[in-house]
Write a protein that binds this DNA or RNA. Sequence first.
RNA 1: GGAGGGAUGGCUGAGUGGCUGAAAGCACCUCUUUGCUAAAGAGACGUACCGGUUUAAACCGGUACCGAGGGUUCGAAUCCCUCUCCCUCCGCCA
Length: 422
Amino acid sequence: MHDLKSLRLDAEPLRLSQRKRRADESVVDRLLALDEEHRACQTTIDNLRAKRNESSKAIGALKKAGEDASEQMESVRKIGEEIKTAEERMTACDNERGELLLTIPNILDGSVPDGADEESNILVRDSGTPPELGFEAKAHDDLGVALDILDFERAARLTGARFVVLKGYGAKLERALQNFFLDQNSSRGYTEVLPPTMVNRETMTANGNLPKFEEDLFGVNFKDYFLIPTAEVPLTNLYRSEILEKDQLPKYLTAYTPCFRAEAGAAGKDTRGIIRQHQFSKVELVKIVEPDTSFDELEKMVADAENLLQKLELPYRVMQLCSGDTGFNAAKTYDIEVWFPSQGKYREISSCSNCTDFQARRGMLRYRPEVGGNTAFPHTLNGSGLPIGRTLAAIIENYQQADGSLRVPKVLQPYLGTEVIA
RNA sequence: GGAGGGAUGGCUGAGUGGCUGAAAGCACCUCUUUGCUAAAGAGACGUACCGGUUUAAACCGGUACCGAGGGUUCGAAUCCCUCUCCCUCCGCCA
């Protein structure tokens, strides 16, 4: 959500950002027009209310003195009617303004390169040329099924497409990765959190998933709750509506949760394997920090995610997203992509974003830069650290051997109690 | 699921129609004095929006907010309705 006050002074940064995103620029003018009308209404109403308050007090005094006040009462009643009319107009303005404000994406950081889509993303660094396997790489799903650690058919029977059952070492690998990620993140200063997997509409709105992206979410019956698409949602909302003291920042949070995504726009994409599922598990990283530090904190968060891939010895590269590929909430995003030998390409495994004060505003999450001073909005950041499903797929593919067995990454061996899965 | 009780400022807690943006205490902040891991006294002390003014901060005026939304009334923290959450007891349950 945007700061109307600063938009009134200078809407050019938002206009520029909308252009760079290839998004509608006219919403900015509409927003400013509505805002002006809203403020005019409010001034009118404030003045009427001031008049009413004054008159009401006078009536109270008259009555106390035992005098007749019916004339004054009648005139105040009329003021009340005027107020009601003006309020209806203001509410209409407010609703449209609010709706618009909730659907305009964050302002891109100046460092974001211009471009329409992922073709224009920029390579920041990589872990070197991926090693050759020395034989033809099999796809992770074929290998997983053959090893009986992935089961798509029975998952389809239980639920439907885009679900998987993990069995034996598949299930154990999930648990090993969960523990490994959380242990690593904890050791790097993140506090482990176990939040609810379902959240209400306010939480989804503050995070930026609603009102615009409802079709991507799974709702639940009987309650206006939603299954979370990522732990980012409960974590960025953990302190919603609160005023934090300066010494409570920065907050570093990490959580393992199931994630649910409707994948409404992904028909036909990644239909094989466990790259794109309706349900998957993920360990998420979230930071709540002071504004001056947020871009440095983003770099550090990317390093935290990279640390996991380095320890797993998986080939990866870091990309900076261009303007057209940067998401709704984000001012700046790095994607980390991991190597998939069977596809001969890198696939996204982590997305780390600085959302600046965009989400904090939506959730009225504030802090006090100085004791006793005014409140300000902190910046929020999120990143995957890491998704279990895609990591599992990457491990299967990169650690496969010619005979169809898998080596187990060194760092996972203590968790798993074996060096080979065959 | 049934019965009952609650929700007030950072915290504790008064307050059943106008004098309450809200007593009192604690915490925090500033100042004074005495001084050694502290005490006493004085003062300040919610959030948001609109307007004035300002380079800005501060400041001044107004409005709204006592869980949320709606209603009654000239006027509501106070009365009525709906909802949410919390607590106690019973039932059920991983």
